[in-house]
Design a binder for these strands. Structure first.
Lengths: 349, 349
DNA sequence: TTGAAAGCGCTACCAA
DNA sequence: TTGGTAGCGCTTTCAA
């Protein structure tokens, strides 16, 4: 079907009544109020050093209101030479409840310190590429979850003005503050507990979902380390987060000859424990099961699930760390343990 | 222990070798490469219209590399007059698994369409205040979860250049595209199901956690509506997400004289069902329980939990909606049902 | 093939 | 008390 392409002007003539006028600037406000742009800036920012008469203030405010004027953050921070944006790249996997809660708190705390917190969804970029993309936004601080950042990335960020770079991860990155997430410690705690309960052939669930290796690998390593030299064994058990996968694993459970399992976290633990029970494997007699994260829901299953409780520090404390780092960018990067991992024994071990 | 505070200059003299030099600009690159800023821009952006000789290109690239030059996004979009930022204000409550997954998909899909997706954590701001804060960033599109935005807010955003404003919520907002989340439909489906199973005195759990009213109120209303005129009753049951609260509710269950309950979602349902069982209330004989969201974990409890499954559309489809809206900002706002709610009967009803 | 220069929207210095 | 104006870093038109 033949058609005619009509050129639609994307900035309609300002005479058109219903059309969206172009975005009002402070110059427009100044014009309408009959003052200079400088005055507009003074009034709207309530600059202390300069006194503007009350009638003028009113005129400016009225004009701004009438035009629906909103200042342009990019222009402002360009002029100012800095911003108060804290950038937090979104993790490569959808956030779990712990992470969601943590990010929420942290955002709140930083907001109260007058920072603007922004989660940046950068799909597919890796390593230094990603760092460059973040650096383009000229954040005053960057909080990077996971291992996506090397020393070169840190350097790129700092060179482009980031006054604080903070990483979450199992080990510190050169030049950045580090919040150490001791996943190995979680695995170690779980395996030690199983060992103490008399288990010698220990399975460790490793989720098959991509993106979780970051956490699962150190947890597995930690478990290995915990029983090293004791004669107990640790076996990696790949498991997808589906009932089918759990049923399949449970079906070959007896062949595996294991007597205890650290199931990565409470969700996988619930899934596996349930499948084991369906298979007639008794928990904890035939197989002791321990999870991690201490989800409330995990207390509802019977037997009640033992777990490694992970307590994260308050968002406020971390926000203060960031604030300190921003105020004193020269300081030597600090490393902090972020986790506090405690075994909570219930009925499944 | 006494200590001496040493004033560290935060912009060290550029002669200092190891100190962080000030952020390199395209002018620095130009200087180092011995060309003009224009040439730098041409080379780094690979401008098609202009041919730059190969040796010059190399010099520019080398210089940029050496300085660790990263372009300044704010300056660029200021000059360009527009950006490709899609702003998504973070919801006031920590995200649940459904929301996390959805946001993740959606971010990925928009990234592939070459947008920059940014979740903005704006603590405490409300209504038009919040809209103004978002507008300062001059996003090309804004996706607002929940009811935080009125027609005035939409107008503010559009006036400041947003070419698409999309709301998630139970009802459309004037001037914005709407993705309708039919929470009432969820409640309706659940209550209808309970009614069909012979229940006449129906409880509806209303979470006490602040910020959830947005979802719980329409779910309750939907349940009321479903049984309106049938002689069946609907009773709101406040419940905090703690074992204590659930135990307290279960303790007075017999006094309440209810025979069925829609428990807001699967998590509250699991909590309540478990408490009821501890109290000796038989499920489903004495009390039929239905949740919502179809969490996998809810299938693990016994009796297996009936639920209202909520399927969200793919992130890709929504990303395309946004893209279409951005390309054609004049179009009449569309409204779409976002939810597809289906009752899944298992053993608890 | 390259350079000079204007200007995006804003703030802050200096002058009136 | 107010206005003129420079300049933040960038792209792009026009001229050489």
């Amino acid at each position: 079907m033949p058609y005619v392409m009509v050129q639609i002007p994307n900035t309609p003539a300002p005479t058109s009544p219903s059309a969206p006028r172009s975005v009002p600037t402070s110059a427009d406000v100044a014009r309408l109020a009959g003052v200079s742009r400088a005055t507009v800036s003074y009034v709207l920012n309530d600059t202390g050093a300069v006194r503007i008469s009350e009638p003028t203030r009113r005129r400016v405010h009225r004009a701004a209101e009438e035009l629906g004027y909103v200042p342009h953050a990019a222009a402002r921070s360009l002029r100012a030479g800095h911003s108060r944006m804290v950038l937090m790249p979104a993790p490569p996997v959808p956030a779990g409840p712990l992470h969601s809660q943590f990010v929420h708190d942290f955002q709140g705390a930083l907001s109260r310190l007058d920072y603007t917190v922004v989660q940046y969804g950068n799909c597919g970029l890796h390593g230094d590429e990603a760092a460059r993309a973040w650096a383009e936004l000229r954040p005053v601080a960057v909080l990077v979850p996971g291992p996506g950042l090397g020393p070169r990335g840190v350097a790129v960020l700092k060179r482009s003005g980031a006054r604080a770079v903070v990483t979450f991860g199992t080990e510190p990155v050169d030049g950045a503050h580090a919040l150490l997430t001791d996943h190995a410690g979680v695995g170690r705690g779980a395996a030690r507990h199983l060992y103490a309960r008399g288990r010698r052939r220990i399975g460790v669930v490793v989720p098959e979902e991509p993106g979780l290796e970051t956490f699962s690998a150190p947890r597995l390593d930690g478990a290995r380390e915990a029983v090293h030299g004791t004669g107990a064994t640790v076996t990696a058990l790949p498991l997808a987060y589906t009932e089918e996968s759990a049923a399949a694993l449970a079906a070959r459970w007896r062949d595996l000859g294991l007597d205890g399992v650290f199931a990565y976290n409470d969700e996988y633990a619930m899934l596996l424990m349930s499948a084991l029970q369906d298979e007639g494997v008794r928990v904890p007699e035939d197989a002791a099961v321990i999870g991690a994260d201490d989800l409330m829901l995990a207390r509802l299953l019977r037997p009640r699930l033992s777990t490694v409780r992970i307590t994260l520090p308050s968002g406020r404390g971390l926000a203060e760390l960031v604030d300190r780092a921003v105020r004193n960018p020269g300081a030597t990067p600090e490393s902090h343990e972020l986790f506090d991992a405690t075994v909570v024994q219930r009925d499944s071990t």
